[in-house]
Amino acid sequence: MELFQAGAHWSGRRESAEACARRVEVLFRQLGRCDPTYARWFEYAYSRKHSLQLPFDPTFETFLRFFERRKYRLAREVFTFDAWTGQEQQGRGGMLSFTCGSNEPFYPNGCLLHLPREEPAASRVLTVSVLKEVVRAMVQAWDPDGCAVIPEGDRGSKKTMENGGTCLGWLTYVSGRRGKVPSLPRPARAEPMEGQGTLIVLTPERFSLENPAHVVLAGRVRERLEKAGLLSPLPG
């Protein structure tokens, strides 16, 4: 089974601990509505045993306390955090990490969610209907420049995402700040999201790098988005 991750990024945006805590509370609350996988969370630790001793309630007050700790600060007002959903199975299906509040190029703002690899959670979550809600949660929380659900085997997109860049995924959100999404070749479709931007869905079925038709379609859509300047970095 191909593994997937959802990631969002946004350009420099200095924000206080209070502002970031409010955004993170929205993120976790909305993710909790997507699937039971995201109903409980633990602070990430280097051993499962230790992490399971660190449950937390993802509220504004909780994150405000976390952001007071030195371990969750990269700079005075640059905050970072890693969380885990506590599955006992092998894999990273419930890991989430983010950096926010940064206006520094060497601390890019971003959020990354490793999607489930174990059944039955994978079959529930890796569908267009649920992933649309995962992307919507990130959009509502972060107001990002872009967001994408990509196969972890897509090394180019994965590297671009981890470096805070914009890439095309199975599902891709493009902020309205970037411009208008052009017409797309079928079966790809575009629809407005949250009145802030556009969601692009490449295929109604699960996207696969091993499907030549999916790869060709992705290339055609990417070409149109690049021509429209929608994958270029935003200034700031």
Rank of each mutant, 00 (worst) to 15 (best):
R177N: 00
D35T: 09
M161D: 07
L115H: 03
K158D: 10
G110Q: 08
T172K: 11
P192M: 14
P182M: 09
V134Y: 03
E191M: 15
A213D: 08
P108N: 03
A122F: 04
F4V: 05
T85Y: 01
Q89S: 10
E18S: 13
V139A: 10
M138E: 11
Q5Y: 11
L217D: 06
R224G: 12
G164D: 00
S129Q: 12
Y44L: 00
F42Y: 10
N103M: 01
L31M: 12
A141K: 03
Y38P: 14
F66L: 07
V174E: 06
S157R: 04
V128N: 11
P235F: 11
Q196L: 15
R23C: 04
T203G: 11
L64M: 13
S232Y: 03
A213Q: 06
T59W: 04
E152V: 05
A190G: 09
L126T: 03
W170H: 05
R124K: 09
V78Q: 06
G93T: 03
E118N: 08
D143A: 09
P151I: 00
P182S: 15
A45S: 10
G32A: 07
C100Y: 11
E43D: 00
G195W: 13
A17L: 07
S51Q: 04
R155W: 15
V125L: 11
Q196A: 09
F207R: 03
T160Q: 13
P151S: 00
D145Q: 04
R73T: 05
G164A: 03
W10P: 09
L112G: 04
T80L: 09
P192Y: 15
G110S: 14
C167M: 00
W41P: 00
T99S: 02
T80P: 09
T62Y: 13
V181R: 14
D57H: 12
R186A: 15
L113P: 03
E226N: 13
P144T: 02
C34T: 11
L131V: 01
A148D: 00
L168Q: 13
V174I: 15
K159H: 10
E77D: 15
G32R: 05
D154K: 05
C111N: 08
D82N: 05
C20T: 14
R224P: 01
G164S: 04
T203V: 12
T37L: 14
A213Y: 06
A137P: 11
F63T: 02
H114R: 12
P187S: 10
G146N: 14
S102F: 02
R186E: 14
G229W: 06
V181G: 13
L54Y: 09
H114T: 04
P144V: 02
Y38Q: 02
P151C: 06
E194G: 09
D35L: 05
R22F: 12
A39Y: 07
F63R: 01
A141I: 13
T59Y: 08
R222L: 14
S208A: 01
